[in-house]
């Protein structure tokens, strides 16, 4: 078995394969970062909505809570299938990459909203009362007092979440998105040894996720100290 692998190595690391794998890695990172950025924006809106106490916002608030609680309890794989089969007939021609990215957005909105919410809630009540007593409006106290103090509680788990999603996008291979994992499968199907194909993919994932998780840990330690 080892001989066979050793034989394949020069062929495996040929120019076209390397470019193929790098492109796939680009798609993995693309899905993750586009999905998580959009998720951060919507998650932030839902988190703020949940903090507000305005009576007019009661219904949107309820919908926000329902959304977050539902999507955090459905497997990513199932969300991928649902999004695929909803979007395909509605908007034929949408790329599989687009469909997978939309799925990431849906899920990351729910999770990031929870992370942001617990960050906002970490700001002590006296800070908020101080803002109220000075006649700040809800939005003023959010942007001038609460957010500047909560980002250090939000960033470390948010970074850890992005790391998680780099890995979870591997499930998009089931739709046929040529991201890292599917690239590995294709190489194996072309006759390369699974050890080589999936091993290389594993190493690539590690190279993408490890620096980011180191960053998350460092961030957490630094912010904890300050």
């Amino acid at each position: 078995m080892l001989e066979q692998i050793a034989e394949q190595v020069p062929l495996f690391f040929g120019y076209y394969n390397v470019v193929f794998i790098l492109q796939a890695a680009g798609r993995t990172l693309g899905m993750t970062f586009v999905g998580c950025s959009v998720g951060f924006v919507f998650g932030f809106l839902i988190a703020v909505l949940r903090q507000s106490s305005l009576p007019i916002l009661f219904l949107p608030r309820l919908l926000g809570i329902a959304y977050v609680e539902t999507f955090r309890r459905i497997p990513f794989l199932v969300i991928l299938y649902i999004v695929l089969f909803v979007i395909e007939p509605l908007m034929p021609g949408t790329s599989l990459f687009g469909i997978a990215t939309v799925s990431v957005c849906l899920l990351s909105t729910a999770f990031l909203s929870e992370i942001i919410r617990s960050g906002l809630e970490s700001v002590p009540l006296p800070q908020i009362e101080g803002a109220k007593a000075l006649n700040m409006t809800g939005l003023q106290s959010l942007f001038m007092v609460i957010l500047p103090q909560s980002w250090k509680v939000i960033l470390p788990p948010a970074a850890a979440f992005v790391v998680m999603f780099i890995k979870d996008t591997s499930l998009a291979s089931q739709l046929g998105v040529i991201e890292m994992t599917f690239a590995g499968e294709m190489l194996v199907n072309r006759g390369f040894s699974p050890v080589l194909g999936f091993g290389a993919v594993l190493v690539c994932y590690f190279a993408m996720s490890w620096p980011l998780s180191r960053l998350a840990i460092r961030l957490e330690k630094r912010l904890e100290a300050s």
Binding site: P126, Q127, E129, G130, A131, A133, L134, N135, M136, Q140, M144, V145, P148, Q149
Partner: peptide
């Protein structure tokens, strides 16, 4: 307040000027 409630993310000067300027 008893616990001062100064805004932790602002300097002393900004704490004192934030209400006059923004409010």
């Amino acid at each position: 307040f008893q616990q001062y409630n100064l805004f932790q993310n602002m300097t002393v000067l900004r704490n004192v000027t934030v209400a006059p300027i923004k409010i």
